[in-house]
């Protein structure tokens, strides 16, 4: 089982590394955007699936990273490499505040609070268009002076892998254990000596950092920013990715991001029917298969594999 996992992982990694040589520019673009969503989805998965904080502010936190980085470069002229990092810390800072403010809020209260925060942020970005470009769009300088999609590809791939490794370490460490303890029963966790306050805030800070990182990269890759990246349907897309991938699995979230992004691309000609279909898929998944669609399929496949393995022995 472990070997099989490792094998799949190695296969996927080498495929990802070789991909730019097998694809035309347009598809590479689709994959880069899929990586961006994968980073957002996996970090939201850590926040919601593991730590149990169903925040709707994740897209807004990506926007904090994106706008901070873009405005820094435009106004101070520093290199985008530093500004993206500063943007990620800014997002983490906002995450800290949200986490702190939401300590007492759970379930629907938390959802409503984070939706309100996102909407207010979007309205401010729109209203202060003299500074933010508003809906007219903010032209963002590129990350690399050279016009090369492959460069962007390997950058986001690197960021994604590094982030996933860190998140995986968190999930499998004591920290991850505490996250889950807080999720399952805050009061019980507290009586067992888990510092609930600390871990709740920490969950927000860590995941917000990754959201900000994704946003920063996105800004300097797409090179145009509008407040629309915070709209509720964007958050819906991230949620659909995680739910379809499996809400308690980082790998599932990444797979979900890939499947939805590619499906959205393949099914382009169907326009709004795509979203009807994704909405339905999200609802049906939640209702009938709460571990997502990917994980059960994967498990079935590996189980069969094990069986044949056993039989041959």
């Amino acid at each position: 089982m472990k070997n099989l996992n490792r094998l799949i992982l190695m296969g996927l990694l080498s495929a990802a590394a070789l991909l730019p040589f097998a694809m035309d520019g347009y598809w590479l673009h689709i994959i880069i955007i899929a990586y961006y969503y994968a980073l957002l989805a996996s970090s939201w998965c850590l926040l919601a699936g593991y730590a149990g904080q169903f925040s709707f502010a994740h897209a807004a936190l990506a926007a904090v990273g994106a706008y901070t980085s873009a405005l820094l470069v435009l106004n101070t002229g520093i290199s985008p490499v530093y500004s993206i990092i500063i943007g990620s810390f800014a997002a983490a800072g906002v995450g800290l505040v949200i986490g702190f403010l939401c300590l007492r809020l759970q379930g629907p209260y938390l959802a409503l609070f984070t939706i309100a925060y996102s909407e207010i942020f979007r309205i401010v970005l729109n209203a202060e268009y003299r500074y933010t470009g508003g809906n007219f769009g903010l032209n963002v300088p590129p990350l690399f002076a050279r016009e090369s999609r492959i460069l962007y590809y390997y950058t986001i791939l690197g960021i994604l892998i590094l982030s996933l490794v860190v998140m995986h370490k968190i999930v499998t460490s004591r920290l991850g254990l505490f996250f889950r303890a807080v999720r399952e029963d805050e009061d019980a966790a507290a009586t067992l000596g888990v510092n609930v306050v600390k871990y709740k805030i920490l969950a927000f800070v860590i995941t917000s950092f990754f959201a900000g990182l994704a946003g920063g990269f996105y800004a300097h890759y797409v090179r145009i920013l509008t407040p629309n990246i915070i709209q509720l349907p964007q958050m819906g897309l991230i949620i659909a990715m995680v739910v379809i991938g499996g809400i308690e699995s980082l790998a599932g979230a990444v797979a979900g991001a890939f499947i939805l992004q590619l499906a959205a691309e393949y099914l382009r000609d169907y326009e709004e029917l795509r979203w009807v279909f994704f909405g339905l898929l999200l609802v049906i998944t939640l209702r009938f298969s709460q571990n997502g669609l990917i994980y059960p399929i994967y498990k079935r496949l590996t189980k069969k594999n094990e069986k044949t393995h056993a039989e041959s022995e």
Partner: peptide, 20 residues
């Protein structure tokens, strides 16, 4: 039920391949 879903996913993929 689960079979149903794998089928759904497969359909989705197949649909994509025939489009362009």
């Amino acid at each position: 039920m689960k079979k149903c879903f794998s089928l759904l996913v497969c359909c989705l993929m197949a649909l994509g391949l025939t489009l362009p």
